[in-house]
Amino acid sequence: MPVNDTIYAYAVGRIRALETRLLDRSRFERMIDSSSAEDALKVLAETDYSGAVSELSDFHNFESVLTAELKNSFDTLIRICPRPELIKILILRYDVHNLKVLFKAKYLGIKSDLFIPIGSLDLEKLAYSAAEDDYRDLPVKLRRAAEKISEDFLMNRDPQAIDLILDRVLYEQLIAVARENGSAFLEGMFIRQIDLTNLRSLIRIKRMGLDREFIKKVLLPQGTLPIDRLTANLDEPLESLVSSLMMSDYADLIEEGVREWLEKGTASRLEKLSDDYITAYLKQGKWMPFGFEPLVGYLWAKEIEIKNIRLVLVGKINRLPAEAIRERIRDVYI
């Protein structure tokens, strides 16, 4: 009798209620159609964000509302998930992001406030570690990565190494934890993210005209698209990459994304389609009455919702036409 998945019964019951409060497409349409950023924020104030929005003295500070909301969602899920380590692994991305910001600040001398205060590592301690070049307090994998970056930078003075080393560690760790816990669903999500990241890196590097050796350093090894195949027709135009992927799951997304990238010179369409692809994968969890899947789905939905709110508000502040914002809005989970 399948009773194991019922350990998630409480959590899923709660998620089902929380899902009803996610913003739907029509809410985003109203925000897009509003005349200014302030009006868009008023639409937001009709939703679950009302409390935080009403306390906002200057609407330019909306970012703090979004971060607080996301942090709140992660905290709730960690509390209600019977296996919180599976939720915590989803936070690793933010730790890695913060580390990247920190290292770039340190090695490139850029003052930065791009930290996202969601990660599990304390930002002050992290800054202290970086300043002292002492990473003993970091988790083992991150510590090794940090030491490798220090070493590499001393020798090569190449800031790109920061992203390369940290991304590699991030995905190694994500896949390892998903496998350890026997979560094929989670592993499936990470593998799809790796594939999509690899595709984007490949196209970006190709457009920058960088060489084969560099590409091999950038591409992450755990994806389903073999690196050999990805790099095979590197010297031919991008269209041949599109046709070589015609038989893969990513055919539609790559075709449309690359076409717009070549036409408009921006990756934003491909990025939107990549997010939508993950959303479509995670939507399976929407119909599961038990199990871990609805929890991952909800967190992703929240991340996408926050990304969408940011897109609309930033678009409104910069007076982008409604159509330009609408194009970038990600599909919603509900």
């Binding site: 019922t6 019964a9 409480y10 019951g13 709660r14 089902r16 209620a17």
Partner: peptide, 18 residues
């Protein structure tokens, strides 16, 4: 007991929020 228990947990989750 098992059946009522499962529903009870789901219900508690929903009632927490609503």
């Amino acid at each position: 007991a098992i059946g009522v228990g499962i529903v009870g947990q789901s219900a508690a989750g929903l009632v927490t929020e609503d």
